[in-house]
Design a protein around this nucleic acid. Structure first.
Length: 196
DNA sequence: CGATTTTGACCCGCGC
DNA sequence: GCGCGGGTCAAAATCG
């Protein structure tokens, strides 16, 4: 896993998820964050999602109320389609990012295996489905381009990794502790303490 | 040669 | 009940 060596040369841009999400990083490219726990209800548009600014996002996470703070869905008719389908994923968290990127696959430090592709109704762009290829980890990720602005990519993470990113492991071995702003380490730890 | 991607089929929930 | 839209499976193809 050469995630630290930027395996995506062309994505040498500001989005290095595996590295750390730090306020000091170049967030110019991160326009919006949609974050929500439990299901996007309608695919209306951002009105049904909660858009949090970068700063807010950070603040929420540091206060421990990851997502809960602002992800309040006014309409209560949200139904996780997934919950009804086989007894799959227990619907942990769902987080969606919208980033400005030419590549839709940004390296977040995890290894993803693509398992499907579908064209979406209201978008000319297809949607790709990925699964975390780590055994036992059934986190899913959905990647599609913004239907209005194809220069934006919407990445939706479904679930929480039950393991750490290879990059995080690496970081853990470093003299300086893991960057507290790293979303993955944060998520991993918050889940292990919360849902156990 | 194993792992991953591709791609069409299949499945399921929901609205009409 | 049917059709549509969205999500997943799985076999074949491709890649490293």
């Amino acid at each position: 896993m050469d995630c630290l060596q930027n395996p995506n040369p062309s994505s040498a841009g500001p989005y290095h998820f595996g590295e750390s999400i730090d306020p000091s990083m170049d967030f110019d490219e991160f326009s919006d964050y949609f974050m929500l726990d439990y299901g996007v209800n309608d695919h209306q548009d951002s009105s049904s999602l909660s858009i949090v600014s970068t700063e807010k996002f950070m603040a929420d996470r540091s206060t421990g109320s990851s997502g809960g703070a602002t992800s309040r869905n006014s309409n209560n008719n949200m139904k996780c389609r997934n919950e009804g389908r086989r007894n799959k994923i227990e619907m942990g968290h769902r987080v969606a990012f919208r980033t400005k990127s030419e590549l839709e696959v940004m390296d977040d430090g995890f290894k993803w295996r693509k398992y499907g592709k579908k064209s979406v109704k209201n978008s000319p762009n297809p949607r790709n489905y990925y699964k975390c290829s780590s055994g036992g980890c059934n986190v899913k990720k959905r990647v599609e381009r913004d239907r209005e602005d194809s220069s934006y990519v919407i990445t939706t993470y479904d679930g929480v990794h039950n393991h750490e990113s290879p990059c995080v492991v690496y970081y853990n071995q470093m003299p300086t502790p893991v960057d507290p702003n790293n979303i993955w380490t944060l998520r991993a730890s918050s889940q292990s303490s919360a849902s156990s």
